[in-house]
Amino acid sequence: MAKGKQDEAWEFFGELLKDRRETAGFSQGDLGARVFVSGGYIGLFEQGIRRPQLDVAQRIDEALQTGGIFERTVRKLINKSPYASYFHEVAELEAVATRICEFAPVVVPGLMQTPEYARAVTVATHPFATEEFIEEKVISRIDRGAILKDATRPEYWVVLHENALGIPVGGPAVMAATLDHIVALIRERWVLVTVIPRAVGAHSVMEGPLRLMEFKDQPPTAYTETAFTGTLLDDPAVVKQAQRAYDLLRVATLSPEASLTLIESAAEDYRRCASTT
């Protein structure tokens, strides 16, 4: 993928960080200890591979006594992102992930949404937003989905709860088209989707969406989300716990074949409903 202005800006951030760190006489490990991340993460920041959260940038300013330059830079870059402040790093990481494992309890994951579905979700969560705002959010979400068809696409595993098939986001016609889109992705072997039936009842992840990401040259991460915010987790013990929860989810799902049949059946039901309205 060609580098964009955001990538170049983060690379500049990393170069500046390395310069200020060396001027202060700190090793990567020294600085990491002062801002509560590993020295390896400082190295990833300096290479422009990882983007520090705002609170980490604030601690870097304090440790290096830089007068807030790193906080201001991070705020500026976050504000230029089309994503929510808590999601912009996740969107950057998914573009370089080698494997993404996702659990969607209510809404079809963004990487598999159609423009009409994405629009319905965005309007529902931003009912007073301008048309320009809505369009920007929809475009950025659909653009993210392009990684599934890229030559270097990640392995993409999705566990859908049956509830995500049953909520008619955007109406029957939109749902039919969205589920048809998911079926096409499955048949092209771009994704592997399994479904947790409602009859399973309680399961290992009850509080919202979960995403796990693995990379070639950096540690895995987990991402959780609520209605109003999200949290990117990279503590190895926490990520391992999230991976175990995801493994338990997969045990509870239907087989890939049975899941595909259920998705196709739901799409056909929506199609019939749309034709009678």
Score class of each variant (00 low, 15 high):
Tyr86Trp: 15
Tyr86Cys: 02
Phe87Cys: 01
Val90Gly: 04
Ala91Tyr: 12
Ala91Lys: 11
Ala91Asn: 12
Glu92Leu: 10
Glu92Ala: 15
Glu92Val: 14
Leu93Gln: 08
Val96Asn: 06
Val96Ser: 12
Ala97Asp: 06
Ala97Thr: 09
Ala97Met: 04
Ala97Leu: 10
Thr98Ala: 00
Arg99Met: 11
Ala104Gly: 06
Ala104Leu: 09
Pro105Gln: 08
Val106Asp: 07
Val107Lys: 00
Val108His: 01
Pro109Met: 07
Pro109Asn: 04
Gly110Asn: 06
Gly110Leu: 08
Leu111Asn: 01
Leu111Cys: 04
Thr114Glu: 04
Thr114Trp: 00
Pro115Val: 03
Tyr117Val: 00
Val121Arg: 12
Thr122His: 11
Val123Trp: 13
His126Tyr: 15
Phe128Arg: 11
Phe128Pro: 00
Glu131Pro: 03
Glu131Leu: 07
Ile134Tyr: 02
Glu136Gly: 11
Lys137Thr: 06
Ser140Thr: 09
Arg141Asp: 04
Ile142Tyr: 04
Ile142Lys: 02
Asp143Ala: 15
Gly145Trp: 00
Ala146His: 12
Leu148Tyr: 01
Asp150Glu: 12
Ala151Trp: 06
Ala151Gln: 11
Arg153Trp: 04
Pro154Tyr: 06
Tyr156Met: 10
Trp157Glu: 11
Val159Ser: 07
His161Val: 10
His161Asn: 15
His161Met: 07
Glu162Cys: 08
Glu162Arg: 05
Asn163Tyr: 13
Leu165Thr: 10
Ile167Pro: 01
Pro168Arg: 12
Val169Ile: 15
Gly171Phe: 08
Pro172Arg: 05
Ala173Met: 11
Ala173Glu: 13
Val174Ala: 02
Ala176Ser: 13
Ala176Val: 00
Thr178Leu: 05
